[in-house]
Measured scan of single mutants.
Amino acid sequence: TLFEALYDYEARTEDDLSFHKGEKFQILNSSEGDWWEVRSLTTGETGYIPSPYLAPV
């Protein structure tokens, strides 16, 4: 399942991933609570992002 960003987000740590509203992601790991490890389909980068900022496509 692909997810889309509902809002912009600016990374706060080196493990976070900055992204823009509308960017699409592949979920790599969603078992860590509200922070999911994802791969951006736009940039190819991986990192953690807050799951409340995402919605299924």
Results as ranks from 00 to 15, higher is better:
residue 3 F to V: 07
residue 20 H to D: 06
residue 14 E to L: 09
residue 13 T to F: 15
residue 3 F to G: 04
residue 29 N to D: 12
residue 49 I to P: 00
residue 52 P to N: 15
residue 12 R to C: 10
residue 15 D to A: 13
residue 20 H to C: 08
residue 10 E to M: 12
residue 21 K to T: 07
residue 54 L to P: 02
residue 16 D to C: 12
residue 50 P to N: 10
residue 8 D to V: 01
residue 16 D to I: 11
residue 9 Y to D: 01
residue 6 L to D: 03
residue 20 H to G: 08
residue 23 E to A: 05
residue 27 I to F: 10
residue 1 T to G: 14
residue 36 W to V: 07
residue 39 R to C: 07
residue 4 E to S: 06
residue 30 S to M: 14
residue 44 G to D: 05
residue 25 F to H: 00
residue 40 S to A: 08
residue 18 S to W: 04
residue 2 L to G: 02
residue 27 I to M: 06
residue 23 E to P: 00
residue 1 T to N: 12
residue 57 V to N: 05
residue 11 A to R: 08
residue 41 L to H: 05
residue 2 L to C: 07
residue 50 P to M: 12
residue 1 T to S: 11
residue 23 E to S: 03
residue 15 D to R: 15
residue 17 L to K: 05
residue 6 L to M: 10
residue 18 S to L: 02
residue 34 D to Y: 15
residue 24 K to F: 11
residue 32 E to W: 12
residue 36 W to T: 04
residue 29 N to W: 06
residue 38 V to W: 00
residue 17 L to I: 13
residue 30 S to C: 10
residue 54 L to T: 04
residue 16 D to T: 14
residue 16 D to A: 15
residue 56 P to Y: 05
residue 4 E to G: 02
residue 51 S to W: 15
residue 35 W to T: 08
residue 6 L to Y: 03
residue 13 T to Y: 15
residue 50 P to H: 15
residue 32 E to R: 15
residue 41 L to V: 10
residue 22 G to T: 02
residue 51 S to G: 11
residue 21 K to Y: 05
residue 33 G to I: 11
residue 11 A to E: 03
residue 6 L to E: 03
residue 40 S to L: 07
residue 25 F to G: 00
residue 43 T to R: 03
residue 43 T to E: 01
residue 25 F to W: 01
residue 41 L to N: 04
residue 46 T to A: 07
residue 30 S to Q: 12
residue 46 T to S: 09
residue 13 T to H: 14
residue 28 L to V: 08
residue 44 G to E: 04
residue 37 E to N: 06
residue 56 P to M: 09
residue 18 S to G: 08
residue 31 S to L: 11
residue 33 G to Q: 12
residue 2 L to Q: 07
residue 15 D to Y: 15
residue 1 T to A: 12
residue 56 P to G: 06
residue 13 T to P: 05
residue 40 S to T: 03
residue 36 W to N: 01
residue 17 L to Y: 06
residue 29 N to K: 07
residue 45 E to R: 14
residue 36 W to F: 05
residue 13 T to A: 12
residue 48 Y to N: 06
residue 51 S to F: 11
residue 49 I to S: 02
residue 10 E to F: 10
residue 4 E to A: 07
residue 51 S to C: 07
residue 37 E to Y: 15
residue 15 D to P: 05
residue 17 L to H: 03
residue 44 G to P: 01
residue 13 T to I: 06
residue 54 L to Q: 03
residue 7 Y to D: 09
residue 14 E to F: 09
residue 55 A to E: 08
residue 25 F to N: 01
residue 8 D to K: 03
residue 54 L to A: 04
residue 39 R to A: 06
residue 45 E to T: 10
residue 49 I to E: 00
residue 3 F to A: 05
residue 18 S to H: 05
residue 26 Q to D: 06
residue 52 P to H: 15
residue 46 T to F: 06
residue 53 Y to T: 05
residue 22 G to V: 00
residue 42 T to N: 09
residue 30 S to N: 12
residue 34 D to A: 10
residue 14 E to P: 13
residue 44 G to N: 08
